[in-house]
Each structure stands twice: as structure tokens, then as C-alpha cells.
Amino acid sequence: MTGRARLGATLAVCLALPVLAGCTAVTGTGVAGTAAPRSTASATPPPAASVPRIPTADASLTANAAAVVVAPVRIQLDRLGIDMKVTSEGLDADGAMALPPNAADAGWYRYSPGVNSRAGATVIAAHIDSRDDGIGPFSRLRNATAGDRLTLTGADGSTVAYTVTELRQVGKIDAPMAEVFDTAGAPRLSLVTCGGSYNSKTGHYVDNVIVTATPVAAAASGN
């Protein structure tokens, strides 16, 4: 909420600036000082838009190589008896996230951040139950509580420890996919399965169970 309020306030300043400056162009990057509006009353209208200096960067291919993404291959959450292989998954024919057929295995959305990523949500999901092998370990995700520790192992053998911060059960119609798959913001983990009642007519569960976890190191450095 505070983040949003602050954004709104920044926008308000942005809105105020061009007006006060006599409707000439004013850059958004010049917003920093709240003093800006004060300086304008007596100012003669500038002849043209003001432009701050801008940084430059090497545009070569080598300087802009795609970041190496380390795929998670195993997830363990000991308290809930979860220890699963993680496979790399894309989209199904309907544009939803594809999952491994076995409920015993979890899928990592391969376009989400990998292990050790610097930003955004790494997404791992698994069937709560499947035709192939019945009820899976992610059926116990709904018993997760804040503070539960879990570990992801990357394809390169690296491990990252996470702490569960939130458990939510949301109707699929309202399920916040943009949030679950957010590629920006602090690094975190979105664990997803189904929950709630099962609609035998549609063959789908009504809800998604969503667990959010944050890297232990990041949480520690935040203090």
C-alpha cells in the first residue's frame, strides 16, 4: 500500500511540474526534489524542454548476452515431506502453464527466473493429484506455514534456501497470475498447486493454492 501511495505521489509531482513550468516539457527524472515547484513562480518560461544528461552503455552483443538461467531440478520442504524432482515446463495448448504428468514431480516455468536469480518470481507448480499416480506431495502445500524452510537445487548443483512467507488459497478465476509470474521485484519463489473443491463436470479444482517464499540470505541481509 505504501509503495502504491508513494507512486501516486510521484505521479502527482510529475503532473504538477509541467503545469508549473508553463506547460513546457519537463523530464520525469527531474522529479527528485520537492523543491522544484517552488522555483517556478517567477521563472520566465524556458524556451525549450529541459533535458538532463544521460548515461551511455556498450551496445555490443557480448556486453548484452542473455543472463545465464540456472534451472531448478529438485525441491525439498522437509516439514511437509516434500522432496520432488523438478522438470522444465512451458505452456500447454490453452496457454496455461504446462506441468509434468506425474503429481510426484514438480514443474518449473522455464520463462520464470531460475535458481539464484536477482529479481522476480521463480514459479514451481505440481498437480495435487493426477491420473498417472494419484495424490502428490504438493497436496500438503496447504499445510505450509510462514517460517517453513525449503531448498531448491539448481542444475549446476547449487542450492538456495527459502523461507515461506505466505500461503493463499484463491479461486482460479481471481488467481493473480500476473503476481505469481511477476518477473520484476525482489527474488522469490511461487509454489502453486490446486485446492478447494473439485468440479467433476469440468475436471478442474476450483482454487489455486499459492505459497510464496523468499531466499533466506536476502531476508537476513534485509535486517
Binding site: 505452456l91 500447454d92 490453452d94 496457454g95 496455461a96 502453464m97 506441468l99 516455468y109 507448480a125 505440481a126 498437480h127 495435487i128 493429484d129 493426477s130 491420473r131 494419484g134 504438493f138 482460479k172 488467481a175 497470475m177 500476473a178 505469481v180 509470474f181 502453486v192 498447486t193 490446486c194 473439485y198 467433476s200 475436471g203 478442474h204 479444482y205 489455486n208
Partner: peptide, 11 residues
């Protein structure tokens, strides 16, 4: 993002 995560098959 994907349209959803259908993560259950049998109930």
C-alpha cells in the same frame, strides 16, 4: 503470464 495453472486432474 500464462493464463492459469490447472494443477489437478482427478479430485
Amino acid at each position: 503470464p500464462p493464463t492459469g495453472i490447472p494443477a489437478g486432474q482427478t479430485g
